[in-house]
Nucleic acid binder design. Structure first.
Lengths: 194, 194
DNA sequence: CCTACCGATCGGTAGG
DNA sequence: CCTACCGATCGGTAGG
């Protein structure tokens, strides 16, 4: 089990910077100083390994972005915590090469199969988390009553995708600042309660 | 020269759906019913082929998105035309698998070299085009005087990245509607002159 | 967990 | 433009 974790950690890093498709059992084996068949033994096929990698990335994301926001009361406050953690997660490059899911999404667009499905599920769950906090924020009067939760999620995700690209492609030192400004426009800064 | 164009057309399609890295000379050769060395003869190396593909994609993008907006007067009007064409370009899937540049950007994040540089240049030129129209719009009083052009470009790009992902990953039939709503929020709907 | 091997595919070259 | 080949790498298996 310990080696399995070591293999997975290496596989997540490799697939985050080289891509989920380019993930190579041989490369992982070399990185963890093991034979190729030793690696295969833990996962069976490359596809199972890819699925395990996606699940591991989900765990990391939950730990880095979602869990720390759980201490903040639901609604606009938690929504702001979630987006702030999200910016920080991209800024700190928790995954080498930027957001693991953005990268995986781009790669798996066209390829049907369980790996794509796993990424879609993770993405959907994350959007649902955001939407839930938006709905609570609306119900509590901290967000405008005519707020369309799906629409706001769409726009929040846009800010994060733009941030990810600005960091990774443009290497723009102002990227984080821009993202925070955009978020401030989308979300009221001070949760003014009742 | 005709065969070169045929090879390029095939290469653009392949790299748009499979990725610029996964581009395979052998696959292209099969697709255009030619020998591998026949293909190589036109480009020398895989890297030159990739560069030619990027340039070809730039030409397509200019033809589909930029050129049709040239009839509209510069400023907010043209900016709105550019973004509308951009939405249409993603909606019609001019490139199979979504925006060629978004995909390439995600893939080339980490890999230094001329191919990455070409994508960065193309991306920068496009952002500069948007920024120029924003500045004219501000100067003409059609956009708020406190508009930060870089900031607005960042947010416009976010809308398009979110649209691309919604179409390609989520396959959300409301994606285009969401993008248009987001754009309407960012850009005044009626260019009210003087 | 290992070595040793399989068939397939890769980018690229030699020689014509 | 072709055939024929190169060394490298791929995912996966046999047999231990």
């Amino acid at each position: 089990m310990l080696t399995r974790q070591a293999i997975l950690a290496e596989a997540v890093n490799l697939s985050s910077s080289e891509g989920l498709e380019a993930l190579s059992i041989a490369q992982i084996a070399k990185a963890v100083e093991m034979s190729k068949s030793g690696v295969v033994g833990h996962f069976g096929t490359k596809q199972s390994l890819q699925l395990a990698v996606v699940n591991r990335a989900v765990t990391v994301f939950q730990h880095e972005v979602i869990a720390p926001a759980a201490t903040v009361p639901p609604g606009l406050g938690r929504l702001r915590a979630l987006t702030a953690n999200w910016v920080s997660y991209l800024d700190r490059e928790v995954f080498p090469g930027g957001c693991f899911f953005t990268r995986a999404a781009g790669e798996l667009d066209d390829k049907e199969g369980p790996v794509r499905a796993a990424v879609v599920t993770a993405n959907r769950a994350w959007k649902a988390t955001l939407r839930r906090q938006i709905m609570i924020g609306v119900a509590e009067g901290d967000l405008r009553p005519d707020t369309d939760p799906h629409q706001l999620v769409f726009e929040l995700v846009g800010v994060m995708l733009s941030l990810n690209q600005s960091i990774q492609l443009d290497r723009d030192p102002d990227a984080v600042h821009r993202a925070r400004r955009a978020l401030a426009t989308l979300l009221p800064t001070q949760p003014t309660r009742h």
